[in-house]
Simulated assay, not measured.
Amino acid sequence: MTDRTPIIVCGIDDSPNARAALEEAVRLAARRGGRVRALLVYEPPEMWGAWAYGPTAGIPLPRLEMYHQSERHAALEIVDPVLDGLRDELVPLPEIEVDAIAGRPVEALVEAAEGADALVVGHRGLGAVESVMVGSTSLGCVLHATCPVTVVPAPVPV
C-alpha cells in the first residue's frame, strides 16, 4: 500500500450541472483524504477552423497564452463560489487545483484522469435520443476513462 494522495478529476463549465459535479468531487476528495483537479476544457482558437468552420487563414487568432489565461480565470470564477458554499460543511476543504486545458472535452478529461482515483462529470439531462444525436461528454467519459467515473445529475429545483 502506498501513501499517495487520492486525486479526483472533475470536468467543469459554467452550468448548474457542472457546479453540482464539482461539489460532489470536493466531498469525495474530503472523504478520501484526497485532492481535486478541476478542469475547464475549451476549444483552442487554432482549432476553430479545423473542427467547425473550414479554413481560417484570413481570420486573426488571439494570442494563445492570453486565451488560455482567460479560460483559466473563467475556471476560477466557477470554482470559487462552489468552494465558498462548502466551507462550513467541509473543514478543512481538500486541496483544489484549478486549470483550463485545450481540447475536446471527452478526450481531454479522459487523458487528465489517467492515473486518477476518480473522474466526476455533470450530466446535462438531454435524454437518450438527444444524447445519441448530440453526443455526450458524460457517456464518453464513462466509456473511455480508465478510472471510476461518477456522473452527477442536474440539481433538482427546490
Rank of each mutant, 00 (worst) to 15 (best):
G140K: 02
G33I: 08
L143C: 08
A50V: 10
R19E: 00
P62N: 08
T146V: 10
E23S: 14
G122P: 06
P81C: 00
V152G: 07
A154P: 07
R104A: 12
I7Q: 11
R72P: 02
E46F: 10
V152M: 07
I7K: 11
S138R: 04
G11E: 02
H123N: 13
R32D: 14
R35E: 13
L126W: 06
I59R: 02
P105F: 09
T146H: 10
L28Y: 06
I7H: 10
D80W: 04
R72N: 05
E43D: 15
A30K: 03
G115T: 09
A50Y: 10
M1A: 14
H73T: 15
I8D: 10
V149C: 07
A29H: 09
V106C: 03
R63I: 09
P55Y: 12
L86D: 02
E89D: 11
I8F: 08
L22W: 03
H73Q: 12
V134I: 06
R72E: 03
L86P: 00
L90S: 01
M1V: 13
H144I: 15
V134M: 00
E97A: 02
V106W: 03
G49T: 04
H73D: 15
T2Y: 07
P155W: 00
T2P: 08
T56I: 15
W51M: 07
Y67G: 04
L90Y: 00
H144C: 10
L83G: 00
D117C: 03
V91F: 01
C10I: 09
T2W: 12
G125P: 04
M47V: 11
A116W: 05
L76D: 14
L119H: 01
A30W: 01
R32H: 15
V132G: 05
R37C: 06
Q69N: 05
R124L: 10
H144F: 12
H144Q: 12
E65F: 02
T2E: 08
P62L: 06
I7F: 12
E111V: 15
V98D: 09
T137H: 04
W51R: 12
P55D: 15
A50F: 12
L64I: 03
L126H: 07
G115H: 15
I78D: 01
P157Y: 04
A74P: 04
E95N: 09
G127A: 02
A50R: 06
V134T: 00
W51F: 02
D80T: 09
W51S: 08
D14E: 11
G125Y: 01
R4M: 14
P60L: 06
T137F: 03
E24C: 05
A38L: 06
Y42A: 02
P62R: 05
W48E: 09
V110R: 07
R32L: 14
G49Q: 05
L126C: 09
T2M: 14
L39C: 05
P94F: 14
V134L: 05
A100E: 03
R72I: 02
A154K: 05
I12T: 10
A154V: 01
G115K: 11
L126R: 12
L22K: 07
G85Q: 00
G103A: 03
Y53A: 13
I7G: 09
H123L: 11
E71I: 10
D3V: 13
